[in-house]
């Protein structure tokens, strides 16, 4: 049990190190290059996270990623239409749950 506590402490410490490091390094003045990265990274990182979340899709075996792709289309469509993230997220998740639980069918 002591070892478990130490393991958790290590995970916490390394995670904190990663989160704090950039703030500590650029504490005084932010170099222009880092400010530039700070501006262009957010959209790029969100794009990365989208792919990361969809990485377990299997395009060649059932369900061919259909639940995720249909739900993703719902989120994008609603966001363009209503510009309200909460609505897009709730509706997209509901659609995903209905399809993946087999309550609504999407087969061709």
């Amino acid at each position: 049990m002591t070892h478990s506590a130490l393991l958790i402490a290590v995970m916490a410490a390394v995670t904190m190190l990663l989160r704090f490091l950039p703030f500590l390094i650029f504490r005084k003045k932010t170099p222009k290059y880092v400010s530039y990265l700070g501006k262009v990274l957010p959209p790029a990182v969100i794009g990365m996270l989208v792919i990361y979340c969809l990485k377990d899709i299997t395009p060649f075996t059932a369900p061919f990623g259909i639940p995720a792709l249909v739900a993703a289309a719902v989120v994008v469509g609603l966001q363009i239409w209503k510009r309200n993230s909460l609505i897009s997220i709730l509706a997209g998740t509901a659609v995903y749950m209905l399809i993946s639980q087999g309550l609504v069918y999407f087969d061709f």
């Binding site: 262009v40 990274l41 957010p42 959209p43 790029a44 969100i46 794009g47 996270l49 989208v50 979340c53 969809l54 639940p67 995720a68 739900a71 993703a72 989120v75 994008v76 966001q79 363009i80 510009r83 993230s85 897009s88 997220i89 709730l90 997209g92 998740t93 995903y96 749950m97 399809i99 993946s100 639980q101």
Partner: peptide, 26 residues
């Protein structure tokens, strides 16, 4: 399937950033 809400969050953020920015390169 409720875990999809996290994916949906990122997709909504991505779409919103896309709509509110002219520069889509990043």
């Amino acid at each position: 399937g409720i875990e999809f809400s996290m994916t949906a969050l990122f997709i909504a953020s991505f779409t919103e950033q896309w709509l509110s920015s002219k520069d889509h390169v990043p």
